[in-house]
Design a protein around this nucleic acid. Structure first.
Lengths: 211, 211
DNA sequence: GCTCCTAACTTTACGGTGACAAGATAAAGC
DNA sequence: GCTTTATCTTGTCACCGTAAAGTTAGGAGC
C-alpha cells in the first residue's frame, strides 16, 4: 500500500493518506485524549507534512467526525456480535446482550466513546454520522420493543420511556465506569475485566426485573 | 471590592482576581465549550494580562479543577434543595427528588456538567474535588439505602448494584439529554423545560417500580 | 512620616497549534 | 511526450499555554 513500508524511502505521494490519518488519529486519541489531540501530531505519525491533511479533511472537526462515524459502526458491530453469540434468541436475552455489548465497547474504547458523545468539534449535521448514530439507537429500541412484545417501541409513551431508560442506563454506566467512579465496589482479587462483565450482567438483569 | 467598578480606572492590583477568573472561566466555558476554552480569554475578561492567572492557578488544569469543585458544590446544593422542597419525606419521594435534582442541574449547567465528568485536564487527585464528588455520591447512596430500608446501601452486593443503577440512570439521561439525543420524542407544543420535567419525573417513577 | 519587603501584576519570549496561500511534485490522461 | 490535475510541501499568520524577568503597590516595622 504505502511504498514506504517496502522501500523504506518516503514517497511524495503517500498512497492512502486518508486511511493512514484516521489510523493515526485513533492512536493519538487513545494516547493523549481529546484535549491532547492535535492534527499536526496525526500528520507526523502518518509521515507527512502538517498541511497534508487539509486535502482529505476540511479541518480537525471533519477528521474527528469521520472517525466518530467509524466508531459508531464499530459500536453497532459490537452489539450485533454479542447478540449473535447467544444461543437462545429470547427477547430478554437479546436485550441483555445488546446492553452488555454497548458497555463492552465503551470499556474497550474509552477514547472513542468520549469522542462520540462528548466532542463539541463533531459535526452533528453530518449525514453519515447521524445515520450510524441512529442505527445504534434503533438497534436498542428494537430490543426494547421485543421485550415489550410490540412492533415499535416508539409509538406509545410507555415504550419511549423504556427506551430512554434503557439507553440512559447503559450509557451512564459506561460513562461512569470509564471515568473510574465505580472503583470503590471492586474486590481486590478480581480483574477489571471480570468485574466489569459481572457488574454489567447484574445491572442488565436487575433492569429486566421491570418486565 | 474591585476599584475599577467605582472609579472606572484600572488598578494594577485587581483586588479579587481569583474569584474574577473563576467567574470569567464559567462564562467562557458556557460560550465556547471545553474545546474552545482558553486561559488567555479568561484573563482578558477579568481585565488583566494573560500571565496574571499564573499567580492564582498553577495551570489551566488547576483553574478547571477549582471550577469543577465549585460545580460539584452546586450540584449537591441543587439536590439538597429539591429534597427540601417536597412535603412528605417518604424515602421513595426523596430518591425521586434527588434524581430529578441531579438531572435538573445537568440540564441547567450543561457546560459545567461536561467539565465535571468529561475533562481530562482535571486533577482527580485533588482532595477538595474528590471530597465534593464523593459528597454527591453519598447523597445518592443514602437515598437508595432509605428506599431499601437499610442503614448503608454499600454493605451488601444488591445494595451496591442499586446505587450503581440509580447513578447510571440519572447520569446517562443527563448526558444524553444535553447531547440532544432525546429530541425525537418531544412534542412540538411542549417547551423544553416542561418536557424535561415530565420526562425525568416519569423516568424516576419507572425506576422506582423496582421496589 | 519613611524604608523595605513581598505579593500581585505586566512585559517579553518560546515552542506548539490550526488554518491558509502559494509553490513543488508525481501520477494520470491524452 | 506533453499537459492537466490531484497530492503533498513550505512558509506564514494569529493564537495558545507556560516561563522568566521586570514593574508596581500595599503592608509591616520603625
Amino acid at each position: 500500500m504505502t511504498a514506504e513500508s517496502t522501500t523504506g524511502k518516503r514517497r511524495y505521494h503517500h498512497g492512502d493518506l486518508k486511511a493512514a490519518l484516521l489510523e493515526a488519529a485513533e492512536a493519538v486519541l487513545a494516547e493523549k485524549g481529546l484535549e491532547g489531540f492535535t492534527l499536526r501530531e496525526c500528520a507526523r505519525r502518518a509521515g507527512v507534512s502538517h498541511a497534508a491533511p487539509k486535502h482529505h479533511f476540511r479541518d480537525v472537526g471533519h477528521l474527528l467526525t469521520v472517525l466518530a462515524t467509524l466508531a459508531f459502526q464499530r459500536l453497532n458491530a459490537a452489539m450485533g456480535h454479542r447478540k449473535s453469540m447467544i444461543e437462545s434468541q429470547d427477547a430478554r436475552a437479546v436485550l441483555q446482550a445488546i446492553g452488555e455489548g454497548y458497555i463492552a465497547f465503551a470499556a474497550d474504547n474509552p477514547h472513542l466513546f468520549n469522542l462520540m458523545f462528548n466532542c463539541a468539534l463533531l459535526d452533528n449535521q453530518d449525514p453519515e454520522l447521524t445515520a450510524e448514530s441512529e442505527a445504534a439507537f434503533k438497534e436498542l429500541a428494537r430490543s426494547v420493543a421485543a421485550v415489550r412484545d410490540v412492533d415499535d417501541a416508539m409509538t406509545d409513551e410507555a415504550g419511549r420511556l423504556d427506551v430512554v431508560l434503557m439507553w440512559s442506563v447503559v450509557h451512564g454506566f459506561s460513562q461512569l465506569f470509564i471515568f473510574g467512579q465505580f472503583e470503590i465496589g471492586r474486590g481486590e482479587d478480581e480483574s477489571r475485566e471480570a468485574w466489569l462483565q459481572r457488574l454489567s450482567r447484574q445491572l442488565m438483569a436487575r433492569l429486566l426485573a421491570l418486565y
